[in-house]
């Protein structure tokens, strides 16, 4: 069954077709989420959210569009929302800590536990890099993550982001320069 046939079947309430779609795209969605949140469990939870939204909004999907592009868009939006939520939560927690109230335990953000690689030095580098990527401007972060974690082409990234190929090229160049600068500052001060 191709993508359009799958979508048509899901629109008629075919549960097996939805299962086939999930099985086909779950790794793509989970890996993209991981590229943004750098935590396996969070990535799985976000991916679940993505497929729930896919299920609920499948009737709005235009069959001329590419299914993977649509899924990437939902995924990116969910991830960015989650990152914003996490930032707000951390801000509230830091305020609570400042005023001596620590009802909720602080959120543990430790990518090393979830990362498949075991080399500690490499882990440390990855953590530093992840922090630097998270500090990029939103558009640069999206372009960079889709390029590095999903190996998408400039054209594909442009389709997901709804922009031009040259804009993506420019975003990626700026992202690399900013990353180099942030990493340089980190290693110089650290």
């Amino acid at each position: 069954m191709n993508d359009n046939e799958l979508i048509r079947a899901i629109k008629t309430g075919n549960a097996a077709a939805f299962q086939a779609l999930v099985e086909q795209y779950k790794d793509l969605v989970v890996n993209t989420c991981y590229g943004f949140v750098h935590d396996r469990e969070d990535a799985e939870d976000l991916a679940q959210d993505v497929f729930v939204e896919t299920y609920e909004s499948v009737h709005a999907f235009r069959e001329k569009a590419k299914l993977s592009t649509w899924l990437y868009r939902i995924t990116v939006n969910k991830c960015l929302n989650q990152i914003k939520k996490n930032k707000r939560r951390r801000w509230r927690q830091s305020l609570q800590t400042l005023f001596g109230s620590e009802d909720d335990p602080p959120e543990i953000v430790d990518a090393s536990v979830a990362d498949p690689q075991t080399d500690l030095e490499q882990q440390e580098r990855r953590n530093v890099l992840n922090q630097a990527i998270a500090a990029l401007a939103e558009n640069q972060q999206i372009a960079f993550t889709l390029s590095k974690y999903e190996n998408l082409s400039y054209q594909e990234i442009a389709e997901v982001m709804g922009t031009t190929v040259s804009a993506v090229e420019s975003l990626l160049n700026r992202a690399k320069k900013n990353l180099q600068k942030k990493l340089y500052d980190y290693y110089r001060d650290g």
């Binding site: 299962q19 999930v22 099985e23 779950k26 790794d27 969605v29 989970v30 890996n31 991981y34 396996r40 990535a43 799985e44 991916a47 679940q48 498949p116 690689q117 974690y149």
Partner: peptide
């Protein structure tokens, strides 16, 4: 390394 979904995802 690409991260994969857990077997119980669906």
């Amino acid at each position: 390394k690409k991260v994969k979904a857990s077997p119980f995802f669906y």
